[in-house]
């Protein structure tokens, strides 16, 4: 798996055209017969913060393992920084920092010694700058004070930070973070998110998997949605949310009348629920619709178009929740 020399020309020279990560028909069937990833075509643009969204068991970690050369795809191809994986591991991986399925540390070593070991494992890492880089990485994740403590005495949040520090030992072109906020308290989550934003503003492409929609919505510029090993959709977060249209919501005690008037006005998909009537927002002027309701004697207490969130998009796309027909 390491026949490609680390001294080959700069990997990823063609990031712009091909994407920092590009997979074609990527498929993994585990030895137990479980089809974990099924024909994945993923393109991650350079410079994006790319959210890889899917419920637990949808194949996110499996995809990341294939991208990082830890497991062999059953079929299909994966390219990282424009180079084929796992063949080009040695040339590509020094440019990639990764957190995969949570941190893994040597409990009997101090935080600093853990990082020294991971850095020594990278044959391109200059031993003359090793200590300085380890200190800088520890500082960056706020662990300088705990650097000398044995890793087994670290809290989960500290372990997660140390894992992130390992991904930041060298300047990276790509960071692959598999559920980096898993198990953290809200404060820890905020810290990780702001670190991700900070790294992205340095120009590093960040590939971030998560099963939390709001996380993706808060930090990502692009997203892909996975369900049961299949890619449902991918694109810019704004486009994805726009793809799921908002809902017109009328709050009124006269739901029957309101629904009738809306239908008369040509509004589609009218649904009555308790004291709310929801519908697909029409193309025309909303004020006229409201006027029509009022004219018909409907006591309108609320009249809004609720903006679609990524969650709506997700629900619509995966067919979970109300929109079962999807």
């Amino acid at each position: 798996m390491d026949e490609v020399s680390a001294t080959e020309p700069d990997p990823g020279a063609g990031d712009a055209e091909h994407g920092v990560i590009q997979t074609r028909g990527l498929t993994k069937r585990y030895r137990g017969g479980q089809l974990a990833v099924d024909g994945l075509d993923l393109t991650v643009p350079a410079g994006s913060v790319f959210g890889f969204l899917g419920p637990n068991g949808s194949g996110k970690t499996t995809t990341i393992r294939m991208l990082m050369g830890l497991i062999e795809p059953t079929s299909g191809t994966a390219r990282l920084l424009g180079r084929p994986m796992p063949r080009a591991s040695r040339a590509v991986l020094p440019h990639v920092g990764a957190l995969i399925e949570g941190p893994a540390l040597y409990g009997f070593l101090s935080g600093k010694d853990n990082l020294l070991r991971y850095d020594a494992a990278d044959p391109t890492a200059d031993p003359r700058t090793r200590r300085a880089r380890v200190a800088a990485a520890l500082d960056r994740v706020g662990l300088t004070a705990a650097a000398g403590k044995k890793a087994k005495a670290y809290s989960l949040g500290m372990k997660q930070r140390l894992g992130l520090a390992a991904a930041l030992l060298q300047p990276r072109r790509l960071l692959v973070l598999d559920e980096p906020t898993n198990g953290l308290d809200p404060q820890g989550m905020r810290e990780i998110r702001s670190l991700v934003r900070e790294l992205a503003s340095d120009g590093t492409t960040v590939f971030l998997s998560s099963h939390l929609l709001d996380e993706i919505e808060q930090v990502c510029t692009h997203a892909a949605v996975m369900a049961q090993g299949r890619l449902i959709t991918q694109g810019a977060v704004a486009d994805l949310a726009a793809g799921a249209r908002g809902r017109l919501v009328v709050t009124t005690p006269d739901t029957g009348d309101a629904a009738r008037v809306l239908k008369e006005q040509g509004v589609a998909d009218v649904v009555v629920a308790e004291d709310r009537v929801t519908a697909e927002p029409p193309e025309g002027e909303l004020a006229e619709l409201n006027a029509a309701l009022v004219t018909a004697g409907v006591r309108v207490r609320g009249f809004v178009v609720e903006r679609a969130s990524l969650e709506d998009a997700f629900v619509a796309l995966t067919g979970e929740g109300f929109d079962v027909a999807g």
Binding site: D2, R65, S89, L105, G107, Y118, A121, D122
Partner: peptide, 17 residues
């Protein structure tokens, strides 16, 4: 311990490791 995956993505190289 899971440290194997981080050594491999470092990348330590399987033969070298």
């Amino acid at each position: 311990a899971g440290t194997l995956r981080y050594l491999l993505v470092a990348p330590a190289g399987r033969s070298r490791l």
